[in-house]
Structure formats: C-alpha cells, structure tokens
Design a binder for these strands. Structure first.
Length: 1018
RNA sequence: GCGGGUGUGGUGAAAUUGGUAGACACGCUAGACUUAGGAUCUAGUGCCGCGAGGCAUGGGGGUUCGAGUCCCUCCACCCGCACCA
C-alpha cells in the first residue's frame, strides 16, 4: 500500500467540508483563541507560493490550539476593493465586481487545496455591499464624533454642539455660536470631526485628467505615458488620526509586537518635544513661526528654511528675488515628497530676499526656501543651525552662508556635530550651559518673553481618506450648499452605481462624477470620491466574529466573547499603514462603547517575504559571435586587427547546413545595419567579418570562403552542425566563451527548469514556440544549466510558482511542511522548488512505518521499548516548544529526526505512532487524518487528545562532556549526570589527549559547568 | 535621506540562556538492490593538509577561561516611507 496523497487529500478535504469540521461557534465552554491572517487582495495572478507562508503558519497554530482544547476562530476573507481591478476595468471594460468575483473564486480554490481549517461560513469581502454598509456606518460614526481633549477620547459631536451653544469656547461665546449660520457652524465643527473634509494636495496629471497614486508617478511624470505630474489642491476627506497619536504610542506598551515593529510605528508617529518660536521679519509685520526640537541652539541659527509652498513665501519675498523664487516653486511642485527628502547630494534652494530677526541678539537671519523642508511637518519652517545639523551644514556650504560656531572645539569646521553634550559658547544667556540642560532654560525664556511656547509635535499627518476612484466604498455624504450632510442610516449601504466607463470625471474627480443622475439628488450633490483600501481592512477582524449580523457591524456579545485577535500574522509592509489605521478605528469604536477593547491585535507575527529565484538562459547575440570570429581569424591573419580596425567588417552567413562566408564591402553592411545581427528574410545571422581589401587581394573570394569555413569549423564546433537558423543559447558555464557582452540573459519560466537544468523540450514549446528552433550549447553531459538570481517574485520575471502545481505533484501536506521547513517564518528567503523532495521523502518514510508497499499493514499493537518511548517523548517536548514559539522549521526537522530514529529502531508500534500522528496533525493534517482512521479511530484527529510529555522516559544517567583546552574542543569524556567538579578534575587530567596538550605543565584552572562543558586553561 | 531587517558550507538552514559551529534537508560523490528509476537503502561531503594539525559564522577591533551569540567600528544586500494592497 503506497502513499496516495492525491486521493487521501481529496477525500479528507471533502469529508471536512461535508461534516463542517471547522465550523466555529460563538458559544463554547472552551477558552477562546482568535488567529487571524492579513486577508489577501485577490489579484488576477492568483496565489503564488509566497502568499500561503503566513496562512500555513496560522493554520498550524490554529490546529495546535484546537488540539490543546481551545475554541479557535480562524477565518479568511478578501480585501477586494483596490486599484488593480479598476485599472483592469479601464483597459478591458470589464466590471471590477466581475473580475473580483472571478479572482476570489480562483483564490478560494487554491486555498482549499492546501487544506486550511477555515470556517468559510464567516468569510468577508470588503467590496460586498453587505460588508461595506458597515464600513460606511463606521465612517459616519467617525464623522459624527470629535476627540475630546479633556477626556482624551472620542465623544459624539452633539456633545460639542451642546457645549458651544451653552458655554461657547475661547474663540466665541455661546451667543455668538447661536448666531452663526449653519454653514459657519459646520465649518467650526469640521475642524473637530474625526472624519473631516479639508483641502489637501494630490498628484495631478493634467494630460490624463486624473489624480495619480504615488506608485503611478515616476520621476515627476506619470508612469503611463510619461506626462508631467504636479501637486494640486483638492477637497479631500481625512481621518483625524493625529488626535490619537499619544494613545497609539501608549498602546504599543500593551501589545506583543516585535521591537522593530513598535519602533517603526513610533517613528511613523514621530513624537517630538520642542518649541514653536515666532521670529519678526525685517520690514514686515508678518511673523515667521518655526518649530525646533533644539531651542538651545538659537544663537547658532545662520539661516531659516521655509517649505516653498507656504503662503508666507509670497508675502515676504523681495522684488529682486521674486523671479528666482517663482521658478524654484515651479520646480518643487514637480517633485514628490520622497524625492524632496531623498536626494541630498543635489542641494537645492532659493533665497527669498527677506530676513528674520533673532529675538535674543537682533541678528538678521536670511530666509531661504528649500525642498527638503516639507509644509506638512511642524510649521513648515525650520531654523537652520549648520554647526549642529548635517543637512543645514551642507546647505550652508553649498550656498556660502557663514557658519556660527556655538560649541567651540566640538565643531571642527568640516562636518556638523549633532551632539547635546557640548558646552555652549557664543550664546548669550546660555553661555557655559550643557546643551541638553540649555533646552529647558531656552524654552523658559522664550515663554517668558511671549515669543513662543513649548510644543509637542507629531510627524504623523492626518490620514487622507478620499480616492478619486471608482472601485471603493462610496461616501454616504451629500453636499448641500457647501455643507456635508450624512445619509440616513436606513439608506445604507449606498451602493456603487454602474458606470459606462472607468475614466476620470471632470476636474480630477473620480469616475462617479460622470453619472449625473446619480450625483445630483434633490437635496444636493453626492460626494464622488470613494474610500481608500484601508477603510474596509481597518475593522474586518470584528466582522468575522459575527459576519451575518444585519443589525450591527458586530454584536457586543460576540465581540466581548472573541475580544482582540490573539495572534495576527502578516507582512511587515503593513507595519505603519494598515496596523495604525485599524488600531485607531478600534480605539474610536471602544471610546464610543461599541466594543470592549481598544487594541485590535494582541500579538503580531511578521512573516518574511518569499523571494523569487529566477532562472536565466543566455542567448548569443551578434556582438559575442563577432568577437569570437574575430579572435579566431586573428590567429590566422595576425597582421590584421579585426576588432579595432575601422574597416574590419565581416559578413558571415550560415546557410543550408553549410557554413558560408560572404565577403562584402562596407557599403552593403552600412545599408543593412539594422539587419546586421538578424535577418528576417533569410532567417540568418549576418556578421560583418572582413572588408579588408588587403585580405581580398591575397585570396580569391572562393578560396577565402573555403579557408574561413575550415578554420571556423575547427575552432568553433557548434557551427559545424548548424542548420538554417542560428539561435543559440549558451549555458552559463560557457559564458566565458562570449563574455557577458556577447550574450543576453533571458528570464526563463522556473517551472520548466529542474533545479538549474533546463527542460529543453518544454523550453522549445514555451511562449507559443518562440524558441522552437533554438540551438543549444550544452555542458559536457548534454545538459543545459541555467543561471540564477534572487529577485522579487513576479509574473514578468517568470519566477512565480503556483501552489496548485506543487499540491498536485507532491501533495498539500508536503507543500505545507516544506514552506515551513524553508526557514524561520519571520525571515525572507528565496523559493527553491528542488528542496521540496526531502520533505516528500519524509512523509513517504512516515507512511512506511504503517504500511509496506508489498506487505501492506505493518503496524502492530506490541508494547513499545524504553528506547522507542524516549524517541517519542523527546519529540513531544520539542514539537510542543517549537510550535509554541513559531519555530516551525525546527519542528519539521524534529519530525524528520523522529521518523529517522523510529525507522532505525524498526518501530511500527501503534502506541508510539498514534501519538506521533496527533503531533503531526497541525503540520500535515491529511496524512495524519488518514493514518489515524487506518489505525481504527472513528473521530477526527483534530479532536484527539494531545500527547503529554513525560520526562521519565527521556532522563539520561550520564552525559558526554566536551573537554576544551583554552576554549578549543579537543576531546569528550562521559560522566554520571550528578557529577561534581572535584570528581571530574582527576579524570580530566589523566586523559591522554589532555596530557598531550598540557605538555607536562600544570593547568592554570579547570572550568566545569555542570551539564555543559569542561575547559582546561593552560 | 529617514526608518526597519538580514549576512554561518555549493544551497535552504540549526545552534532557545555566552559553553561540542554546520542538526535537518537540498545538491554532489561512490556503492547496493532493480527489467527500469525521478523508488528505496548504505557510506561520504565546511575549507586547507598525506598526517599531526591548522583555518572557518560579511571585514576589522574589543570583553571573556570560552563569542555565530555581548560591545565598538566598517561593508554588502533586502524591505518600507503616507493614493499598491
């Protein structure tokens, strides 16, 4: 009986489905455990082997927890709104809903083949109106709430209205408020709403008439078409995530994320303590407000830098500098934020002609604008201290701005020193103070003088929440006379209307703006933007708890039962976007009393990326063969330099299984220059070889051809068996023959390469026979060996591997275990299909412990030996520990070690094997289920009792100690387990090898670490 | 630029607390069995050296009886940076 994994896996997948084996109830006596994967965007390309890495890890943990007696929620769904589907719709006219549906079906069938224990009855799709109804509802909650600074939490906006109308605030009295028009009131409230509308900059492409994503902008022009892209102000929706900045920071202390993940979030939030200082501007009544974290360096300010887009720039620029300033602003508009910060080598900036006045010593400070200062951070203006800041220093050097030294010898004049430890000089009232102490002194003085105040700043900006797109959640908002009015909850979901085409609307609005009868309602004009991708994904973990609830987005009872996600698995690419947004949404919903916890994810496990391992074939190009011919000819015509002589052009044609050489003059070659390497008509390569008249004089043409044919045949063997066409692929080892220049590397589909060996026949059929007539230069053993490189996994590089193929070829269990065996889950690693066979062999070897191909059943009811029990219990301990700490790669090898040892012991005993199967269930559920039932069990193995480790079986009576001399291991000695140092020393010293190293001398010291090692210091 | 991560055999990796570096696999070499082998089994496999032994965890330095692991410094590669999801 052999291991028929295809039949087995199909059988159990169907059985699990029919018996609802993985259905999860919200009512259970068991403790709950919630395992979640970051749900995928269902792309048209389908799953590749990179996707399931995290899914397998979470599936293993879910099954493990269930075996350990937990009620485990392990759902899956789809983040199905997104730009690619819309882009596809623009190109093909197919409705995104249609393509999305198709893609989801593909994803699901692929996922099902891997044998995950999802409860599909809980599936969510963010683009499903039944789902986005609730995304819209939560948006309205955000819209109708404000962040109360006193209580530090979200409160209904009605409370604020109540406060204004009875008490007013510091800007207006209650009477004034009550006298405001509706529009005036609304503008005030808009400044507090958690979801609010304001003006913000977008990437505007005039030529395409549309707003572009950062992804679609490359070097200041549109990716498609290369049209110019500029910043444009548009009305946008935002989420006031900055209000939650402090709580998002504090919350990090309570969750189990990796330190690097927390660090990334902290950096993103970017909390800094500093001061805002107002500077007078010479000859103007305007003030310049700068934000600085280093007020201690105020006497070292040599210039100011403003973000070029600040309105203040136009108000203060001098007449002489106006043109230069305007030109510079135009330049900056074409630059992305990232370009503006990244390219430090290229220093750019422009003097405004204005001066600020240092309030402490009256110094006039020139005011510049430069792209490296962004309007969105701080006040959009900085005070530059070249002696203490590298970028300021380079700027000063570049523009010849004199540098003031306020830190004496700590500044060497050739580079900035950002220290806080130096003593201040040249600094008026701060002289003699340590910089770090001077910060508070300076702040006090600034506040005392009323020219500024302490300020906590955040790098994080409010989150843009509008997209000028079709395929996203429509906003439940109608604009009435400039006032955003919400739709009544009864009208939700506001479904996406059908559009005829997916192109942009007028004035950069989204496609929805084109549907006039949808946009225009009796009350007013609908909002035509849609919500961004992270809207639906910010709260989906809640919907899984109660996916079919039509009364609420989640029932409070259900969310109280399941609480936060216990284990969340996904990639680091979501570190700052998705994770911060969903943390914010959770906090808002908690503040408003909808849920009882304010962090969505208790523990986060980051899975590494699986990189592609690309394969290359090397195609000989004209340059290589030309060079080779020239080299060969050179040995026979040493007096001529074929490569370097300007007249040395040679025509070479392969024809009718013969090598022929056609000698022509320059004129013909020049005319046919474009056909020089490949001639379509003759399907031949033409190579310029000789047009050297001296040679022509020496040989008659016919003789020359014969001669060249002969030497070429002698020297380049492959030319002799050439036929009509020369389309050669050089193997990687033969590249030296041509050099890198002489070949073009072509990505070849990794699925037709076995390890590094190309399947030549498959290659000839690949790409509809594009290479059907190719010839190859093989290795000595007749194989074609490909080149390799690790790159991102992508269709265009032909390095994607479909899990379906692997499941068909080796089975889901092999695939699951191999993905885990590759290395630590958190680490990125390249995919290598070849290695999968080792895992497959392991499962076959496991199978043979139960069944022999010829003899059939071999397992027995015999009593296990102590040796066998030791192997089992060692494994139980190891698997338990490794699974618990997500070290799945070492767990897989522990299984291998166990099966190898049991096979060596010829152990076929049910008592041992049965427990091993339960251990294996999370990793290889199908084979475990099959063998479990073959052993005569009736229930599912997922409901079996998890084996318990018994230390009594594994205790040893002695230990083999490594004996080192000066830290280098020289020999080993075996001692009883409870041995003491005094018992060890004489034995060690008597040891032959130790004596040899001692060379008669007495040891300085003998170090004995119980249960570890012995070290003799000489 | 800022932020994060990773560097160990030909390859993926292991070494959980500073204590026998390379477990477990892939690949490779030799052999057995077989009509056959992309099945299975056996042996070998970090590098140099006949050997004793020496050298090895990206490079350099340090702490320690002992460093892949801790500290300093340099280098290389990968990922993210706010409208990809």
């Amino acid at each position: 009986m052999e291991y028929k994994f295809r039949d087995i896996e199909k059988k159990w997948q169907e059985h699990w489905k029919q018996t609802n084996a993985y259905r999860v109830s919200n009512n259970s006596d068991k403790p709950k455990y919630y395992v979640l994967d970051m749900f995928p965007y269902p792309s048209g390309a389908g799953l590749h082997v990179g996707h399931p890495l995290g899914y397998i890890a979470s599936d293993i943990y879910s099954r493990y927890k269930r075996l350990k007696g937990f009620n485990v929620l392990h759902p899956m769904g789809f983040d199905s709104f997104g730009l690619p589907a819309e882009q596809y719709a623009i190109e093909t006219g197919q409705h995104p809903a249609e393509t999305t549906k198709k893609n989801i079906a593909t994803f699901k069938s692929q996922l099902d083949k891997i044998g995950f224990c999802y409860d599909w009855e809980r599936e969510v799709q963010t683009s499903d109106p039944n789902y986005y109804k609730w995304t819209q509802k939560i948006f309205l909650e955000l819209f109708n709430s404000y962040f109360c600074n006193t209580q530090q939490k979200a409160r209904p906006i009605t409370e604020l209205v109540e406060k204004y109308s009875t008490k007013g605030n510091k800007h207006f009295t209650a009477e004034q408020w009550n006298g405001f028009t509706e529009l005036e009131k609304e503008e005030v409230l808009m400044k507090r709403r958690l979801a609010f509308s304001s003006f913000g900059e977008v990437n505007w492409c005039e030529a395409l008439g549309t707003v572009l994503a950062n992804d679609e902008v490359v070097n200041g022009v549109s990716e498609r078409g290369g049209h110019p892209v500029v910043k444009k102000k548009m009305r946008q929706w935002y989420l006031r995530i900055t209000a939650y900045a402090d709580r998002l920071l504090q919350g990090l202390e309570t969750v189990d994320f990796s330190d690097s993940m927390k660090e990334m979030q902290r950096n993103w939030i970017g909390r800094s303590e500093g001061a805002e200082i107002d500077f007078d501007i010479k000859g103007s009544n305007k003030k310049l407000k700068v934000y600085t974290t280093r007020p201690d360096t105020i006497f070292g300010v040599d210039f100011m830098v403003l973000a070029p887009e600040l309105d203040l720039v136009n108000e203060i620029k001098s007449a002489e500098q106006t043109e230069a300033v305007n030109d510079y602003i135009t330049y900056v508009k074409s630059r992305s934020d990232r370009e503006r910060q990244a390219e430090v080598k290229q220093i750019s900036g422009c003097f405004t002609g204005a001066y600020a006045i240092n309030p402490f010593n009256g110094t006039e400070i020139p005011i510049w604008i430069a792209e490296y200062v962004l309007a969105g951070y701080g006040t959009g203006a900085i005070m530059a201290v070249p002696c203490g800041d590298e970028r300021d220093f380079k700027f000063a050097q570049h523009f010849n701005i004199p540098i003031t030294n306020i830190i004496g010898s700590s500044f060497n004049g050739t580079e900035a020193n950002p220290t806080k430890e130096a003593t201040l000089e040249n600094s008026g009232f701060l002289n003699g103070l340590l910089m770090k102490d001077a910060i508070a002194v300076a702040n006090n003085k600034i506040e005392e003088m009323g020219i500024g105040k302490r300020k906590v700043n955040f790098k994080m900006r409010d989150a843009g929440f509008s997209r000028q797109r079709y395929w996203g959640e429509p906003f439940p908002i109608i604009w009435e006379n400039g006032i955003a009015k919400q739709l009544d909850e009864k009208e939700l979901p506001l479904e996406l209307p059908h559009v005829a085409k997916y192109g942009p609307g007028p004035e950069g609005e989204g496609p929805l703006a084109n549907i006039t009868d949808w946009v225009n309602t009796p009350e007013g004009r609908r909002e035509t933007s849609t919500m961004p991708g992270y809207a639906g994904s910010s709260w989906y973990f809640l919907r899984y708890m109660d996916p079919n609830n039509s009364e609420a987005f989640v029932d409070r009872k259900a969310s109280d039962y399941w609480n936060s996600v216990d284990l969340y698995i996904g990639g680091t690419e979501h570190a700052v976007g998705h994770l911060l947004y969903s943390r914010m949404w959770t906090k808002v919903l908690y503040d408003l009393g909808y849920i009882g916890f304010d962090e969505p994810f208790k523990k986060l496990l980051n899975q590494g990326m699986i990189q592609g391992s690309s394969r290359f074939v090397y195609r000989i190009n004209g340059r290589g063969v030309e060079k080779l011919l020239a080299d060969v000819l050179h040995t026979h015509f040493a007096e001529y330099d074929f490569q370097n002589s300007p007249n040395s052009k040679i025509d070479f044609v392969s024809h009718k299984k013969q090598v022929a050489i056609e000698v022509t003059g320059n004129s013909r070659i020049d005319k046919n220059d474009t056909k020089r390497y490949w001639s379509k008509e003759t399907e031949m390569y033409q190579f310029s070889i000789i047009s050297n008249y001296e040679i022509l004089e020496k040989y008659r043409t016919g003789d020359l051809i014969n001669f060249l044919t002969k030497i070429l045949r002698d020297n380049i063997s492959y030319l002799s068996n050439s036929s009509k066409q020369i389309k050669y692929f050089a193997s990687s080892k033969q590249l030296g023959l041509f050099g890198d220049e002489g070949t073009d590397a072509i990505h070849v589909d990794v699925n037709i390469v076995d390890g590094f060996e190309l399947d030549v026949e498959a290659f000839k059929k690949w790409k509809n026979g594009e290479y059907a007539n190719a010839k190859f230069l093989f290795e000595e053993d007749g194989k074609y060996i490909c080149g390799a490189e690790t790159e991102k996994m992508s269709k265009s590089k032909y390095n994607t591997v479909n899990p379906d193929d692997l499941c068909n070829q080796y089975g889901a269990d092999t695939f699951r275990m191999y993905e885990m065996f590759l290395g630590p889950v958190e680490q990125s690693k390249p995919w290598d299909t070849k290695g999968i066979e080792g895992v497959h062999r392991f499962l076959k070897k496991l199978w043979r412990l139960f069944f022999d191909e010829v003899k059939g059943k071999v397992w027995t009811d015999e009593k296990p030996t102590p040796e066998e029990l030791k192997v089992l219990h060692k494994t139980i301990k190891k698997i338990d520990e490794d699974t618990e700490r997500f070290s799945y790669n070492t767990a897989v090898s522990a299984f291998m070690v166990c099966v190898n040892e049991l096979a060596d012991l010829k152990c076929n005993k049910k008592e041992i094997l049965e427990q091993l199967l339960v251990l294996l269930t999370p990793y290889a559920p199908h084979i475990a289920e099959e063998l479990w039932s073959e052993l005569g069990n009736t229930g599912l193995i997922i409901d079996a009792t998890y084996p318990v480790y018994n230390a009594a079986y594994t205790t040893e009576s002695s230990k083999e100690y490594p004996v080192s001399i000066n830290g280098k291991m020289r020999t080993t000695l075996t001692f009883p387990i409870d041995v003491e140092q005094k018992d060890v020393e004489p034995v060690v010293l008597q040891n032959e090898i130790v004596q040899k190293w001692l060379e008669g001398k007495a040891p300085k010291k003998i170090i004995f670490v119980k249960n570890k090692m012995i070290n003799v210091v000489v």
